[in-house]
Computed example of a mutant assay.
Amino acid sequence: MSLVAFLGAIEIGLVFGLVGLGVFLSFRVLNFPDLTVDGSFPLGAAVSGTIIVAGGNAYLATAIAILAGCLAGLVTAALNLRFRILHLLASILTMIALYSINLRIMGKPNLAILNEATVLTPFQGLGLSNLYLRPIYAGVVTLIVALLLVRFLASDMGLAMRATGANPRMARAQGIDTAAMTYLGMAISNGLVALAGALFAQMNGFADVALGTGTIVVGLAAVIVGEAIIGTRSVMLWVLGCVIGSVVYRIAVGLALNSSALGLNASDLNLVTAVLVAIALILPGARNPLRTLLAGRNATGKSPS
C-alpha cells in the first residue's frame, strides 16, 4: 500500500470513527437497532454542501448539518415511541424518506464543493499539504468528540441513558424518563453521523445522495473490531475502541483492495466489507471455547474432562 493510500485510509477511518461513535450510542448504549445512519450520513453531506455552495460559512453549515442529523434521529425515535412502530422498521422508514429529502436539499443527485471554502480552508496556509492536513484535522475532531462522549456517558444524564438501554423497566422504577433518554440518545447518535457526513463531503469535495450506502455496516464494523481489539473494560476504552476499530477496518480494506495477490479492485469494496465484518463477528465467538478451557483448568488445576 502506498503512502497516499495509507494516509487516505487513516483519514476515512477517522471520519467514520464518528459514525462508529454514533452507532455505539444507539446499538450498545440504548440497545436501539438504528438504520437511520444510512440516511443521516448523506444528509449531513447534503446540508453542509448546499449551504457552502450557496456562500454560507463552512462551520455554520457543519453545525446546521449536525442539527439536521439530530432531527432525523428524533423522527426515528418518535416513530418508535409515539406511534409504537418497531425500532428497526422505524429507522428503515426514516432512512428511505431521507433519500428523497437529500435529493430535495441538493436539487440533484450529487453536488461538487471542490473549489469552495470548507472547514479545512483556514488551516491550509500552515504549510501542510492536504495529504497530511486532512487526517490530522479528522483525528483532532474525532478525538475531541470521543472525549466529550466519554464525559457525557459518565455524567448523571449519561448514566441514566445507559440504564435506559440496559434495563428500561428498572430505569423507569428509579424515576428515569426512558423516553426522553431515547430521544436524546438517538438525536446525538445521528448528529454524530451527520457530522461525519459533513466532514467527508468537505474533505473529498462532493456530496452524493448515495453516499450513505452501507454506512451502518461500516459503523458496526468499527464497534465490533474496536471491542475485539481494545475490549470493554471501561467506557473510555469502549469509546476509543470504536475510533481505533474504524481506522483498523479502513486500513484492512485498503490492504485487501491494494493486494495484487487477491486480485481485487474498487468494485469489490462491498464484498471486502462483508467478509471483514463477518470475520470480526466470528472471531470473538471463536475465542470463547479457549476461555472456557482455561477457566476450567484454573478452577480444577487440570484440564477438564
Results as ranks from 00 to 15, higher is better:
S305C: 07
A221T: 00
D208F: 09
I105W: 10
I216H: 04
G69V: 06
V275L: 04
V247T: 08
L271P: 00
I230V: 15
L133C: 14
V235P: 04
A207H: 10
M106W: 06
A179H: 11
R162C: 02
I244T: 12
G13Y: 05
R134P: 08
N298P: 01
T121R: 09
P33Q: 02
S155Q: 07
A222L: 00
L126Y: 13
N258T: 12
R250M: 09
F6P: 02
I101C: 05
T142N: 01
A58M: 01
C242M: 01
L79A: 08
P122E: 06
L294P: 02
P122N: 03
L276G: 01
N288D: 09
R28Q: 13
S26R: 12
T50E: 08
N167Q: 06
K108N: 13
I144G: 04
I244V: 15
L18P: 06
I230E: 01
L159S: 03
M186A: 11
D156N: 14
G263Y: 05
T164L: 06
S267R: 11
L293W: 11
F27E: 01
N288Y: 13
A261L: 04
D38S: 08
E116V: 01
A179D: 15
V223L: 03
N80Q: 14
A90I: 13
L195P: 07
I64M: 11
S246G: 05
T300H: 15
V223F: 00
P135F: 13
G197Q: 07
A146M: 09
V217P: 00
S100Q: 15
L111R: 09
S246L: 02
F200C: 04
Q124I: 10
M106L: 09
V225M: 01
I52Y: 02
S305F: 14
L120V: 11
N31D: 14
G125I: 04
L25E: 04
A173T: 04
V29P: 07
A5L: 13
G56C: 05
Y183V: 08
G39C: 11
D38V: 08
E11I: 01
N258I: 02
L148Y: 09
I279M: 12
E227F: 03
A222Y: 00
F206K: 13
T273K: 04
L281S: 00
S48V: 05
L192S: 02
G69N: 10
A117T: 13
L126N: 07
T36F: 12
L237P: 01
N80A: 11
A160P: 04
T300A: 15
A61R: 06
P168Q: 00
S234W: 07
N80R: 14
I85N: 07
Q124Y: 10
